Amino acid sequence: MKDSESVTTQQSSVQVWTKALAESTGSPGGGAGTGVMLSIAAALTSMVAGYTEAEEAQREQLAGIHARAHALRQAALQLADDDASASNAFGAAFRLDPGPERDDAVHQASVDAAKASAVLGERAINAIEDLGWLAANGNPALIADVVVGFGALRAAIAGARTNVSFDLASLTSAGTTLQEVRGQHPDLWNTVTRLSDALDRIDELTAGVDEKAAPTEAL
Rank of each mutant, 00 (worst) to 15 (best):
D145F: 01
D210S: 13
D210R: 12
L120N: 02
D203Y: 09
V146T: 11
E122C: 03
V111I: 13
R161F: 00
T177S: 15
T191M: 11
A207D: 15
G149W: 04
L134P: 02
H107W: 10
D197Q: 15
T176Q: 14
L199I: 13
T162I: 11
E122V: 06
A160G: 12
G132P: 00
A109M: 08
G121M: 01
V147D: 12
T176P: 01
K115N: 08
E129D: 13
S173F: 14
S117E: 02
P186D: 11
D167H: 15
D197I: 09
D210E: 14
D200A: 15
K212D: 14
L168N: 07
S173L: 11
A198L: 03
S196A: 15
L131Q: 01
P140Y: 01
A136V: 03
A116C: 07
V148D: 07
D112V: 01
V209I: 14
G183L: 05
V119K: 07
V111M: 02
G121H: 02
T206R: 12
G159C: 09
T162E: 03
A156L: 06
R161S: 04
L195F: 13
V119A: 09
F94C: 05
A114Y: 03
V147Y: 06
E204V: 06
I125Q: 06
V106W: 04
N163H: 08
D210V: 10
R102E: 11
A113N: 07
Q184P: 03
E129C: 00
I128H: 03
E101V: 12
G175C: 09
R182S: 11
T193H: 14
S110W: 07
A155M: 12
S110E: 08
N126Y: 00
G151L: 06
E101G: 03
T191K: 09
G99R: 04
L120S: 05
D187F: 06
S117N: 09
A152V: 05
T193K: 15
A116K: 02
A158G: 14
L178C: 03
L195P: 06
K115G: 02
G99F: 09
I143C: 07
T177M: 05
K115A: 14
A124K: 01
L195S: 09
R123F: 05
K115D: 12
E101I: 08
A156M: 06
F150H: 12
R161Q: 12
Q108G: 04
R161L: 10
T162S: 14
L178A: 11
A136M: 03
R201F: 02
G149K: 05
L205K: 06
S165E: 12
E180T: 13
G149C: 08
T176N: 07
G208N: 14
A109D: 09
D210G: 03
T172K: 13
W133G: 03
Q108M: 08
D197G: 07
L142S: 12
A144S: 15
V164R: 05
P186H: 11
G99V: 04
R102Y: 10
K115P: 00
D103T: 07
A118Y: 01
G175W: 13
P98V: 02
F150N: 06
A152I: 05
A198E: 04
G159A: 11
N190A: 14
L153Y: 08
H107V: 02
W133L: 02
V111S: 03
N139C: 05
P186K: 09
E180I: 01
L131M: 10
A105L: 10
Q184I: 01
D130N: 09
